[in-house]
Design a protein around this nucleic acid. Structure first.
Lengths: 255, 255
DNA sequence: TGTCTACAACTTGTATACAAGTACTCTGCT
DNA sequence: AGCAGAGTACTTGTATACAAGTTGTAGACA
């Protein structure tokens, strides 16, 4: 059945026999030479993006057969990607019925936002990973891309910018399990803002995002992680306020 | 490809078309009438227990074919369970080689423990779920079971008691995503203590656990969640101290 | 017309055959 | 002896056929 290996833990380094990779990740993602995801991971990311960019709105039915045809693979890898999306709460599968993009449960959304607010403080307390000049450069570029969208209403593009912004900030989290958690919670909630964006004033929303990116950028230049946390907290609360205004009941009762 | 459903989120309640279930869970687990897991979920839990009880020591190779034979199913459900275990960081699969129970990475372990210590405080801050008398009764019983093990050295049984203790406390976490996160982190770290238990003094370890359960019980009776957090924090730090004593470098540099 | 039933057309879940990859062994040569 | 290389016996990953389940619909019948 199983071969009893050395029952001791590995003192430091990497998995035995595993090729040395920078940024050893718990859930290792398959990547090719150019560090781009491939295989099942590529499918997973593509589907996640489609869901979180509302190309698959909540309630949509996803067909394993159709996806298999589109990606040129069999149902097996598709099912793996969908199973992962189900673990992360973005879809739900039922035998004989189909796989549906989950609608957002308000109670769950409240709890996720309450948790994310708390985690922002935690992230600031923990010594951050090193920020390179390239990272700051990318953030500057993202702020520019967002600003350019002010005169061209393109919600999906704006959402994509925000996703990249979040991805970049995630890299600064100096605690790997916390980073994984923060990412999961982000993807669980990011659809809601985009869903309500048509009801908002476009220019205001662009300005909010530009302000958030630039404020974070300034704080990062000062190595002021508490400042980053304050900015993110402020914008999250503001965003929640705007969301609350368009929902029947308030999403989050602030403490 | 997909049918555009109602693009609005569901105001409250449950998934449309989903049978009303108490304790709506994000990652819904298949259960039969008696609320016991079945199918893939049963296999997943069984394998997770075997790994965390060290019946599959770190470094062991798991054979999909052997597991399929043992559980009387094909490789497909086995692979689903293993994939989930891989998401949660307990095993690692490599094409052409096999599926190995992961050894514990010290750096990752440090980060998980640091995070768990922070989350304990968070759990206390959030309004808890209601504790029933049945829960208190179960905790009392668990303390008794642990006490009985003082004269019968049975590490696996003691670990099982502690797992049930943690499972019960998890139910008191009033924030569902936080509960899921705390559970995952628990299963990622619980092997380490058990692994080093043979080096410890058996009676002392039993006493520690009995003390933790009973102290938590007293705090719960007072509805003192901050007290529960204090007890858990204290015991986690103590446990870390004992672990540090038997490892080359300290696992966690306490702040 | 309303209702109940059987069926057909889907869906996801499972079993199985095959492809791809790795590691070890045994052989043959230097 | 030492070493290179083909081959073999495993492993996981993928494709496909089939089983199980659900839903809507057509049709018989009251």
């Amino acid at each position: 059945m199983f071969v009893a290996g050395q029952p001791l833990m590995r003192p430091q380094g990497h998995e035995p026999g595993e090729p040395s990779k920078e940024g050893f990740c718990n859930t290792m993602h398959a990547r090719d030479a150019s560090n781009r995801p491939r295989g099942v991971d590529l499918i997973y990311r593509e589907l996640r993006d489609r869901i979180c960019l509302l190309r698959y709105p909540p309630g949509s039915m996803l067909s394993e057969n159709a996806l298999a045809d589109e990606f040129g693979v069999s149902r097996t890898p598709i099912r793996q990607a969908l199973q992962r999306l189900e673990f992360e709460g973005l879809v739900v599968s039922r035998h004989g019925v189909g796989t549906m993009v989950r609608t957002v449960d308000l109670q769950y959304l409240r709890e996720v936002y309450a948790l994310r607010l708390k985690l922002i403080d935690l992230i600031a307390e923990i010594p951050p990973a090193r920020i390179t000049d390239d990272d700051l450069e990318l953030l500057t570029q993202l702020a520019g891309e967002a600003r350019e969208l002010r005169d061209r209403r393109d919600p999906e593009a704006l959402a994509r910018v925000y996703h990249r912004f979040n991805e970049e900030l995630s890299l600064a989290i100096g605690n790997q399990p916390l980073r994984e958690i923060a990412d999961r919670l982000f993807w669980q909630t990011t659809r809601v803002w985009l869903q309500l964006l048509p009801e908002m004033t476009w220019e205001d929303e662009v300005d909010y995002i530009v302000d958030e990116i630039e404020s974070v950028l300034q704080a990062l230049r000062r190595d002021d992680m508490e400042g980053v946390a304050a900015v993110r907290r402020k914008h999250m609360v503001l965003c929640l306020g705007r969301i609350n205004a368009y929902l029947e009941g308030p999403i989050l009762a602030l403490p």
